[in-house]
Design a protein around this nucleic acid. Sequence first.
DNA 1: CCGGATGTTCACCT
DNA 2: GAGGTGAACATCCG
Length: 258
Amino acid sequence: MPEIAELEAYRVLAQNSTGRQICEIDAEDPFYLKRGLTVSVLRDCLVDRRFIAVRRVGKFLTFDVGGHELGLHFGMAGHLLVDGRDAADFDASISHIRETWDPLVVHFSDGGELRVRDRRRLGGVFLDPDLSHLGPDALGLTTEQLAGALTGGRAPVKVRLLDQDHLAGVGNLMADEALWRAGIAPTRPAGSLNEAEVLRLHQGLHDAVTSSIRRGATGGGVFDSVRHYGASCPMEGHPLSHRRIGGRTSWFCPAHQH
DNA sequence: CCGGATGTTCACCT
DNA sequence: GAGGTGAACATCCG
């Protein structure tokens, strides 16, 4: 369910894997290993080492083993499990997901394991991922950074919010919620926002990000719950509109988003 | 049967 | 170069 809130929950969960010695790697699906990575290279770089630190960069999770870094991306339907546990309070839905072939299992010498489950195989495993192209992280984003991400853009502001090279961590649901909170139409050219609107969008994004992280997951918020036909805006009751923007379904309120 | 789904990448147009 | 559209990836759900 990976937007920034899920990735934050996974980062916290993954703290349980630090300091533990890796004794074996299973990664039987070559498609899931990105950039020519093979399971034997993965084993060479990880086995007998320990995870020293776990970090989140946008929608990536990275595991430092000293000298090398394991990178995980969860695509649209990926989940992280550590010792058979998911992100506990917030990710309970995983228990309903059919267990087939988990694309990555890291076994620890203490008998535990770290596991990636991905029904749709849209995620991936990276070794020493280059994340330098990512924009500033949506968590802790400053107004100036947001302004920089939007400036000069002729694409719809929503497309900019989703562009990980300009702003890292925001997904489809959070982009809609931030724009809804800020009262800005998703189709507005990114560079057309005035100073007050950028300020509003920064506030809306901040609120959407922090509340979803507090909740432990994207979705479940006031606006997320109305993304369906016949729904009305929770702010003033006007029927919501939806259309595809940048290839993604977008919900917005035509009455207060301009 | 068909369309859509919290993501990314790439081909192909304009 | 910028931006748009649609396909692909694979699977489940309504």
